[in-house]
Amino acid sequence: MVMNFIQGLIKYEFLQNALITSVIVGLISGVIGSFIILRGMSLMGDAISHAVLPGVAVSYMLGANYIIGASIFGLLAATLIGFVEQKSPLKSDTSIGIVFSSFFALGIVLISRAQSSTDLNHILFGNVLAVRQSDIIMTAVVAVSVLIFILLFYKELVVSSFDPTMAAAYGLNVKLIHYGLMFALTLVAVTSLQTIGTVLVVALLITPAATGYLLTNKLTHMIIISSIIGVVSSVLGLFFSYTFNYPSGATIVLTAACFFLLAFLFSPIKGLLFRNKGGVMNEEV
């Protein structure tokens, strides 16, 4: 099985392409996902990754690069969510739910109009066969940009995630940081489209990050662990996808879920079986 996969890798360019993209996407998702879950924005991650769909469709129709269209719609969704939340008494999960499902529905309509249903299927659930050389370059450019963003603004991301009030009190523009992160999230979501598919992007964002969170009490370690788990899940998932002919998005996500389950049960500091051994949170407020 493994030999077969390796032979496939040597033989088929599409598999090489798929492997390279999934490794990059797994890595970057782990990094950005760590901030997403610490800021309590998992639902937002799900929303953005769905909301890019109409952008992909419009880009397709216009023959433009889908990264641009998707980014516009991703940011538009993030802004609209914030707007609905501020201008109505609705809670944030409701405004997120309304906005992203509407965007997603619009995307489905647009894609059905523009393309055959098989293409829609590929966008929704990923299609490793579709990864082209030019996509790899695009993914790499996005990954490097997002990493640079995180490195440059690491301090600001940490302080605004942990204590946004303190950050605002000393004059940090926490809104700008928020939208910067939303933009990065959109870019990552778009690059994950081909290997994971829109529907399951959120899993690669939050599952490895949540696994890292359960395994350590240090943010830098959490980011490193979640990137590694993101990469390993992507590679293993691709292997299962190739070997058993399942959609790659599903196998990658299930692999990540297995890692999460292991950490959930056996994490030395926060695992279910080792609770009350120091890692448990203080109940006192």
Binding site: L38, F162, D163, T216, N217, K218, M281
Partner: peptide, 10 residues
């Protein structure tokens, strides 16, 4: 009470 005590920070 506004602080997230589970945040991975020392």
């Amino acid at each position: 009470s506004a602080i997230d005590l589970t945040f991975p920070i020392t």
